[in-house]
């Protein structure tokens, strides 16, 4: 697959969304709602449950599956209240020394009047700042589109993993082609130039691990679940301050 084919694949209809990952990997999931400031943003779902018997907080950007649920979840484009909910749940996890798993799948944070009025910039900035200093283990897995600041808001983690046909990029290839070359026909070229595929990202050290998708079979979810549990088990042995210092170094290298 070339980069543009991967871009299309990362957005493909029928691809499992965050809710599916939670259903397949998290036992006894209890969803927790709202940012306690303004409202409950359905583009970001979060809550608590168990992965292989160990408590975790899970926060996912949810695109929705059918048309109705896509609309309900705003196509996975979060408003400021979504990022504020995520931060609230991360802080709750920190208090109880519970690791945080983020599932990232968004074309980007929402662009609109309400989002700007309620401080989209401030909400994402605060999410990055708080997540990067969180004193509990964190892992972000990009499961579809990792769209710019909207994805980074939930990806300032100890490690970032990506499934093999997902992307992570500073801008959509469409945006890049139209801004830089004033030619929306050059999307395929932009996809290559942006180095947004899982393999490119691994080489650039923007992700630590590429997860094989195995057609999103039960074996895939089972394997990912085991890997996540093992990762958190390892991270738990590290003192919180060291964890934060290691995270600093992870991002300092860029």
């Amino acid at each position: 697959m070339n980069a543009y084919e991967i871009v299309l694949k990362s957005r493909e209809k029928g691809r499992p969304t965050a809710a599916k990952y939670i259903e397949k990997m998290v036992e006894g999931f209890i969803e927790l709602h709202g940012d306690r400031r303004f409202s409950d943003d359905a583009a970001i779902i979060g809550g608590v449950g168990y992965i292989v018997g160990k408590p975790v907080t899970v926060i996912g950007i949810e695109k929705g599956e059918d048309t109705n649920s896509k609309i309900e979840h705003n196509f996975g484009c979060a408003h400021p209240e979504g990022y504020r909910k995520a931060v609230r749940l991360m802080k709750e996890a920190e208090k109880f020394h519970r690791p945080v798993l983020c599932l990232v799948d968004t074309s980007g944070a929402y662009c609109g009047i309400g989002a700007e009025e309620r401080g989209q910039s401030e909400a994402i900035a605060t999410a990055i700042l708080d997540m990067i200093r969180l004193k509990t283990p964190t892992l972000s897995v990009i499961i579809g589109e990792g769209g710019s600041g909207g994805a980074l808001g939930l990806s300032a983690a100890d490690e970032v993993w990506i499934t093999e046909t997902s992307t992570y990029s500073v801008i959509s290839p469409e945006g890049c082609a139209s801004i830089l070359w004033k030619d929306s026909g050059k999307v395929a070229q932009a996809s290559e130039c942006l180095k947004l595929t899982a393999q490119d990202l691994l080489e650039l050290k923007a992700v630590e691990r590429v997860v094989e998708e195995q057609g999103f079979s039960d074996a895939f979810f089972e394997g990912l679940k085991e890997s996540i549990a093992a990762f958190f088990e390892g991270q738990k042995a590290i003192p919180a301050d060291t964890l934060v210092e290691k995270r600093y170094a992870r991002f300092r290298k860029f």
């Binding site: 990067i132 600041g149 992570y168 942006l194 923007a206 600093y248 300092r252």
Partner: peptide, 23 residues
């Protein structure tokens, strides 16, 4: 905003600077 010619490296600057601000 971001320098799109630097791709993901540009995006990572947001996290890198934020970490330094936090410290």
């Amino acid at each position: 905003g971001a320098r799109m010619q630097e791709g993901i490296v540009s995006l990572m600057q947001m996290a890198k600077t934020s970490a330094a601000v936090a410290k």
